[in-house]
Design a protein around this nucleic acid. Structure first.
Lengths: 167, 167
DNA sequence: CAAAAAGTTCATTTTTTCTTGAACTCATTG
DNA sequence: CAATGAGTTCAAGAAAAAATGAACTTTTTG
């Protein structure tokens, strides 16, 4: 009912770092804890390991692992000796970034184009010509935000995937 | 107790766009609605305008506006004729980005350095030399993530502040 | 094939986060 | 200086999100 099953100090630290990181992205803390534990474990872990060591329910573990897989934070491993699905951390920040963007940002960014177009139509209903002009300008700005956002992502991707250059 | 006070179709659309955008960043929808309304209004708005037109409480409006100001999504305006504080949208995405980063990402990213250092210490407690090496490598990767993140931000800032170049 | 193991689902419960509204503060003003 | 207006605070209620755990598949295995 409480007290996480024995975690070393090292594991405990990474779990709590994971929880912090998760909260930075408004993700459930169970998800952060699971990633932290995965990261701290030299060998791959099975669902039951998370349940026992983090003292969370099977349901949480199952859903959390699916999510971590979806965003590309962990990957699955299969050992011939073990019929369970095992998980280890995905060490490429690029994949992680892509996963998070796909999950959170892109869906909204994509439909923003259509939305702005429809806003332009509705603009006709604004009586005052000066107001209408001002709002049209704002819509231009808004459109620019979307474009910049879309431009930034591939750039970020390239940056994060390469090696760390000095200077 | 409900039914938002008369909003034009245009305003309604921007309010709901704001709510969508807010949910993309896990922000309360009242905050998104307020930004949308600000954006849709040619003239600056006072706290009471939000309360009446979005049909939200004074408390929400007050807190929401403080938040929007903190992240740099709106700015205050003072008219000699009006002793209330008036709000209008901040049209620079650069400021908005900086605000959001300062609010959500930076605080966590900053302390990550210290945290990793302390993790290196705790690494000594790992018995197996091979495991210790593997985990040390992971900590290197983790450190790299932080560095890359910190590098990416000024870059993004420059990108977003400039004009939209073609190709 | 019955039993056990691995996982998934999802209705409930628990926890967290938002929102409300009444009680305040601090200025103006009649 | 009482009354009004603008705005903040925060305890309490409402709503949303996350966690639980029992019931269920699907596979394996004795």
């Amino acid at each position: 009912m409480s007290e996480n099953g024995q975690l070393s100090e090292f594991e405990q630290s990474l779990v709590s770092l994971g929880i912090s990181a998760a909260s930075a992205f408004s993700l459930p803390k169970s998800v952060g804890a699971m990633f932290g534990l995965t990261f701290a474990s030299p060998g791959p872990l099975a669902l039951d390991d998370y349940v026992q060591r983090l003292d969370i329910s099977k349901g949480s573990a199952s859903q959390g692992l699916k999510f971590l897989q979806r965003i590309g934070a962990v990957k699955t491993v299969y050992l011939p000796s073990d019929r369970r699905t095992l998980y280890e951390p995905e060490m490429s920040i690029r994949r992680l970034l892509i996963g998070i963007l796909n999950e959170n940002v892109l869906p909204h960014l994509q439909q923003s184009g259509e939305r702005v177009a429809s806003l332009r139509d509705q603009l006709e209903q604004v009586e005052d010509p000066q107001d209408r002009q001002l709002l049209a300008d704002r819509l231009d700005t808004l459109e620019g935000w979307g474009k910049k956002g879309r431009m930034l992502m591939p750039l970020a991707e390239r940056m994060l995937s390469g090696p760390l250059k000095k200077k």
